[in-house]
Write a protein that binds this DNA or RNA. Structure first.
Lengths: 252, 252
DNA sequence: CGGCGGCTTGAGCTGGATCAATTACCGTGG
DNA sequence: CCACGGTAATTGATCCAGCTCAAGCCGCCG
């Protein structure tokens, strides 16, 4: 079931068949379905388990008292919503679906068990946590320094490359099941302005966007326009003989 | 030496004397001094150890090719710069000082050793990592949704409360050793505009700022103006009989 | 005393916001 | 097959928060 997670982790580590089976097992215990635009967990709730997105898109968001809403990150298939969140008492933000979502609820004991038995997975989850943090930092840069066109371009690059990492692109295109309002909430722009920026990107041939399908004919060109530097996604890969046992896991 | 770190962690967990000794020991091995406006580690470098700020202010930042610079987070005394960073091959951002800084370089094995022997510390470091991530998310909201005055107000609230947590406030005031350019780089505003916002906050009596000393006569008022909600700092505290052994550590 | 980094202030400009329609795109029921 | 209703995309017009440029000022240090 969790092919996407496995595929993602394999960008970093080589997992043995037993590792994969352990992940499959953990993700099969409890599967839940959500409709579009539904909260998976809300601010103030107590997190009880780790959610693994199996299918569909979701997002982390925060709403200010006066209604302004910021999307803090997108969750794509294969993404884990905080593999450790139960250390904290309550959620300081919400997680909601964008499309219909199928997810696996993984109990904390499961996580504990899997990571105890499978050092490669532990190592790979560390990598995934650190990359998630790096993405969050990059969003800070995006919102703080980039212009509208750069922000949107950057976000599209990131999403495309992340989707590619879990096998959800076809050639130079992918699905982009978000509204322009969502894009605005993620980039700190108004929906009207998002619309205009998208037109501009279309007009300069940097993207093709029809319905929910995004095509990026020349990814490098878009990256250039958006000042997108791949390094923060840390997509190097350890050698095939990589063995997590050989390198100690910090904090573990 | 690492009183600030200990004090910070004690906001969350009760540390035994042995725990504190272990932290003191780890932080005493290798101490380094930096001048102001110096890089501690740069983008592209390979991280070799964990840095613990003992004294002074530093920041994480990222510079775009054309010179635009975003401060991604501030490091205050007691802050750890990524207690796990060596999982990644190279830095995707830089860390630089603001004031002169005294820091402890902690070797990864040290961290490993301390966390193996001291579950309460492990738990507390998890808490600190998660709060760091929450702060990063809040910055995303800050940059994406808040107005200039709200952004600056929010940042000042956050810094004040974090400083208070490590014992570096005196009553309603603290040191704020950053330039207005720095504040601009952190909030995505121009230095000129930062200046005007500060004037405005001063004029409305929300802050007193003379030289490097910031006074917040009415913190709640400033919080209200900045739409600052304390919850993301997770400053509840476990009971005095809290014992990390009783609650499993995830991923460990 | 002169130089320099940082703070202030003024003036004019603009990226992006807001407000207000209008139009395209469904999915649904008749 | 079409009419209907709701959501999302688009367009136009106007406004403003925050930017840029430029100059002056202040305090500190060599």
């Amino acid at each position: 079931m969790p092919q996407h997670l496995i595929r993602k982790l394999e960008q970093f580590a080589c997992l043995a068949p037993a590792d994969k089976r352990a992940l499959e097992d953990a993700a099969a215990r409890k599967v839940r379905l959500f409709g579009p635009h539904q909260d998976i967990i809300g601010e103030g709730d107590e997190p009880e388990h780790v959610n693994l997105i199996l299918e569909g898109w979701a997002c982390r968001y925060k709403q200010l008292e006066d209604g302004r809403r910021q999307i803090i990150s997108f969750f794509l298939p294969g993404d884990l919503c905080d593999p450790h969140v139960f250390v904290l008492r309550e959620m300081d933000h919400s997680i909601g679906t964008i499309t219909p979502v199928r997810l696996a609820e993984i109990h904390r004991d499961q996580i504990l068990h899997v990571t105890e038995e499978h050092p490669r997975i532990t190592q790979a989850l560390w990598w995934e946590m650190l990359v998630t943090a790096a993405i969050q930092r990059e969003w800070t840069v995006n919102l703080g320094q980039r212009t509208g066109r750069e922000r949107i371009g950057h976000l599209l690059c990131e999403l495309f490359i992340r989707l590619r990492g879990v096998g959800l692109t076809e050639g130079d295109s992918c699905l982009l099941p978000v509204t322009q309002v969502d894009l605005g909430d993620a980039t700190g722009l108004s929906n009207v302005h998002v619309n205009r920026v998208l037109q501009e990107l279309r007009a300069s041939g940097l993207i093709v966007l029809r319905g929910k399908r995004l095509t990026i004919p020349d990814l490098e060109a878009l990256q250039r326009v958006a000042l997108f530097n791949l390094n923060y996604l840390h997509l190097y890969r350890e050698g095939p003989d990589f063995d997590a046992n050989g390198s100690d896991q910090p904090l573990a």
